[in-house]
Amino acid sequence: MSFQVPITIQKAIENIEQKKYFLPSIQREFVWKPEQIERLFDSIMKGYPISSFLFWLVEDDTIEEYQFYEFIRDYHEKNNRHNPKASIVGEKSITAILDGQQRLTSLYIGLKGSYAEKMPYKKWKHDNSFEKKELYLNLLKVSKNPDYTYDFRFLSKKEKDALSEDNYWFRVGEVLKFKNMNDVFQYLRSNNIALKPHIYL
C-alpha cells in the first residue's frame, strides 16, 4: 500500500461523474444525514483535514469476480437510497473505494446532487412527504450553531426563498464553475454581494 499524489475535490467529483470510481459490494450503503454532510463542508472550509481515502485498483483478470456499485447522486430516503449496480463490462481496470465512501458520496451529493428525507409528521407512503433539497452556503452570515463556523444548509427552493431576507444563499455546486479567483469576484460583483471579512468562498 502506498500514498498517491493528492487530488482536488473537483477531480474526485469528476472521477465519480466519469464512472472511474466504484464501490465494492463489501461497502455498506450511504447512511450520512444532512447535518453530517454540512459538517463535512464546514470542516473543509475551515481547512481541517478530512482524512485519507483507501483505493483499490482492480485489474481486468479479477473484475468479474466482484460486484461493484455506482455512487448515489440524488439521495431520496424512500425512492433512491440504494446504490445502483455498475456495468463494468469491457473495463480493463477500475478503482474501488475501500475507505471514504461516506465522505465521497457526501461531497458528490453536496456539489452535484440533492437530498430528500421524510419531513416530520408526514407519512412514508406519500411522495410529497419528501422534499428535494440542495446544499447552500449563506455568504453573508456565519452559522448560529456554535459547532459550525459556516452556515451550510440543505434547503428546498421554498425554504431558500423564505430565508433570503438579509441572507444570500449560494448553491454550493456552483463553485465548480469557477476556474479562478477572477470568476469568484465577478460572481460577487454581478450579484452585489459584499462579503464580511470572516466569510470566504
Results as ranks from 00 to 15, higher is better:
F53C: 00
N191F: 08
P6V: 11
S190Q: 10
W169K: 09
S87C: 12
A86I: 06
K125I: 14
N15L: 13
D151I: 00
Y75N: 02
I94M: 05
E35D: 15
W56D: 13
S114F: 03
N167K: 04
E59V: 10
L23Y: 00
S156P: 02
K122Y: 09
E165G: 00
S93L: 10
I88W: 08
D42A: 10
N167I: 04
M181V: 11
R153K: 15
L57F: 11
R28L: 01
R103W: 00
R153S: 14
K160V: 01
Q102E: 14
K85W: 01
F71C: 08
V5Y: 11
M1W: 07
S143M: 05
S25Y: 12
A96Y: 01
F178D: 08
V184R: 06
Q36G: 03
V31T: 12
K19E: 13
S51C: 08
L40N: 03
D60A: 15
Q186N: 12
I7K: 00
L23S: 04
Y136G: 05
H82C: 07
Y21K: 00
Q10T: 06
Y48H: 05
L104I: 02
Y69L: 13
L40M: 03
P197N: 10
F170Q: 03
R28I: 01
W169E: 10
Q27L: 11
E29R: 07
K92W: 02
S2T: 14
R81A: 14
W56V: 08
E117P: 00
F71R: 11
K78T: 07
A12Y: 04
F53W: 00
Q36N: 12
E91D: 05
P49W: 11
E117Q: 13
F22Q: 02
V184N: 05
Y200H: 13
I88E: 07
Q36D: 07
K196C: 09
S106Y: 04
D42W: 01
E117K: 15
P6F: 14
I16L: 14
R39F: 12
F178A: 15
Y150C: 03
I72W: 08
F3Q: 13
I193H: 11
A86Q: 10
Q27S: 03
S51Y: 08
